[in-house]
Design a protein around this nucleic acid. Structure first.
Length: 602
DNA sequence: CGCAGTCGGATAAAATCA
DNA sequence: TGATTTTATCCGACTGCG
């Protein structure tokens, strides 16, 4: 049964579903009474807006360099000179400031200036152009790109001015006393990232003898020295999670390299081995958390995400080791990594095992055995029809050129062979299957919505593998905070693991996704589902109230939207500078809120 | 340098709905 | 018929790798 908590603003109210025994839920659970009051929600929204505006990207950028050990004035000067976009150039300039006699300056030439090649005609154009993709004109777009001018420097300085107030306010919002926030800021400096401040406060609360100024200043010093060295060598960490990798330090690097193979901290069936990742003490405090996002994000995004999440090393996993489709994702969590188990039955890992019917029509020259990442956009029927015609009119087997073009499209759009010379996009039932959801899990939403929701969702088996360590730790069930829940991948994974969910507080802005999760919940769960639409309505006070009601959260799980990070986004791939980064800040804010409240309570 | 790969978005046309 | 939703089509960039 579900309890619906409506914190939506007046202009966008979703109503209680009368048919869904909402009354039983309401009467059975006192949760609704407190959470339902319309008064605070308005106040809450204003607070939330304030927070959102406070998290200026430039401030965090400045903070990053200050954290590396560069003086703030120097950082501001460098950013003003270079612009905030080109982080490597800023860094090079900073290094040049500090080490004038060094030859590091060569790095600064790495600033990339868009260039146009004069005549970019495709030189691989085949003479025997016997395929009739009449619409497949490969004209090169000769549109000139506008040089992005980024001269908004003064605003940044103004924003820096109120940094102190905002930092203090943020910390107070998280539940820390103002004097402690003040002390932490004095200890660590104005531009210290929030997680370091939180760390500092925790440390002073719990290990007062360890806590003094030189703890952080010495850290900064080391970081700077190491960073300088690495910048010269252009060396990167990573390179395989197996065996003897160096200790994790990516959180302070300019970028994090992806492991190859992308198997995370170990696959099912691997010999157990110690991961050796470093988890700072306060990150180990309850609750467990599990954050997800695309692995192939913009450069430096994962370093920043990791910095915000206690500097924990991301676990990069490609779900191709769990199902028949690729899905490269990074996960930052504080879960134990030993004693993991897999869901059964084990899903098929090749296309033919998953969909035997397609083998009949699969041409030998299409050597794909796994599908690419399932995305939110689907191939149009026009495209598959063009391919059909082209192949029908071609020789058998088709010429190399035709094969190449067809394969390109098949890979790009994840097409499968449904008949002679006939390809089609996957349908949502197949996507549900590949991603580990029950059949017709997304039923009720429109076809388009189903595609979109599924393209954004967890691969259940992968996530369940990581979450499996919780089963024995919570035999009586868990209270879960599910942020950006989507269609409930986390919930489905926990359910498949046989972990009871006493209460799930779910935040999801998309109504179709909420409906999907609620429907599934009503069919499969006996616990309480509390829904929020807007993550910003989950204020510190609201979280505290929920914790009082529930006795605390055991798991905070979710992935923040990737719109600004995803490689396939052609328009706004601006990394954590983008508007979606607000949601990531909310994730961090809420997690820190919970940790601080639960630390104070228990 | 070429290639493969990527939880996408804005727009207008078309279809559906009230 | 006008409003709303769905569909089709058009958009390059960035990263890592060899």
């Amino acid at each position: 049964m579900a309890v619906i908590v409506d914190l939506v603003s007046d202009d966008d109210v979703f109503e209680l579903d009368e048919g869904n025994d909402g009354q039983v839920g309401v009467s059975s659970y006192p949760a609704r009474r407190n959470a339902d009051a319309p008064g605070p929600s308005r106040l809450v929204r204003q607070d939330a807006d304030g927070m959102a505006n406070g998290a200026t990207p430039s401030a965090s950028l400045v903070g990053m360099y200050v954290e590396m050990g560069f003086p703030k004035e120097m950082v501001l000067k460098a950013i003003k000179e270079i612009g905030k976009r080109d982080e490597s150039a800023v860094l090079s300039l900073l290094l040049a400031y500090t080490e004038d006699d060094d030859s590091v300056g060569s790095c600064s030439t790495s600033r990339r200036i868009p260039q146009r090649v004069e005549d970019d005609d495709d030189d691989d154009e085949e003479e025997d152009d016997d395929f009739d993709f009449e619409d497949w004109d490969d004209d090169v777009d000769a549109g000139q790109r506008d040089p992005h001018s980024d001269g908004s420097g003064d605003e940044e300085f103004l924003q820096e001015m109120s940094q102190l107030d905002k930092q203090i306010k943020s910390l107070v919002d998280m539940g820390f006393p103002e004097d402690e926030a003040n002390r932490a800021l004095r200890r660590c400096g104005l531009d210290t990232p929030m997680h370091v401040l939180v760390d500092s406060i925790y440390a002073s609360q719990h290990d007062p003898e360890v806590m003094d100024e030189n703890r952080f200043s010495s850290c900064v010093g080391r970081k700077k020295a190491r960073f300088t060295e690495d910048s010269k060598k252009r060396k990167r960490y990573g390179g395989g999670a197996h065996g003897s990798q160096p200790p994790w330090d990516g959180g302070h690097e300019e970028s994090i390299s992806l492991p190859k193979p992308m198997v995370g901290f170990g696959l099912p069936g691997d010999r157990p081995r110690s991961v050796g990742r470093w988890l700072p003490a306060h990150s180990m405090r309850a609750p467990f958390f599990y954050y997800e996002n695309v692995a192939l994000a913009t450069k430096g995004a994962w370093a920043e995400i990791s910095r915000s999440l206690y500097g924990i090393e991301p676990e990069f996993v490609d779900s191709k080791y769990f199902c028949a489709a690729l899905r490269k994702r990074g996960y930052i969590h504080n879960l134990p990594t030993e004693g993991r188990s897999v869901l059964r039955p084990i899903p098929p890992k090749t296309i033919f095992e998953a969909f035997p019917q397609y083998e009949t029509w699969w041409p030998s020259w299409d050597q794909r055995r796994q599908l690419n990442c399932l995305q939110t956009c689907m191939a149009s029927a026009k495209l598959t029809e063009r391919i059909h015609r082209a192949l029908a009119n071609s020789t058998d087997p088709p010429t190399q050129a035709v094969q190449k073009r067809v394969l390109e499209e098949c890979r790009k759009w994840n097409l499968v062979w449904i008949g002679k010379n006939k390809v089609a996009a996957l349908d949502y039932l197949e996507m549900e299957f590949l991603l580990g959801y029950p059949r017709d899990h997304t039923r009720g939403a429109s076809k388009k919505k189903r595609d979109k929701c599924l393209g954004n969702s967890f691969q259940v088996d992968t996530v369940a593998f990581h979450l499996s360590v919780l089963k024995d730790r919570f035999p009586c069930g868990m209270n879960v905070l599910s942020l950006f829940s989507g269609i409930g991948g986390a919930e489905v994974a926990l359910h498949k693991l046989g972990i009871r969910m006493k209460t799930v507080v779910s935040v999801e802005i998309c109504e179709a996704s909420r409906n999907i999760l609620r429907t599934w919940w009503d069919q499969t769960q006996d616990g309480t589902l509390i829904e929020f639409r807007d993550v910003q309505s989950l204020t510190h006070e609201k979280i505290a109230s929920l914790i009082r009601q529930l006795g605390g959260f055991d798991l905070v799980i979710g992935g923040s939207p990737c719109n600004n990070l995803a490689g396939s986004n052609r328009h706004h791939r601006v990394g954590l500078e983008g508007d979606q980064s607000v949601l990531f800040r909310d994730y961090v804010r809420i997690l820190n809120s919970i940790k601080s409240i639960m630390a104070n309570v228990g």
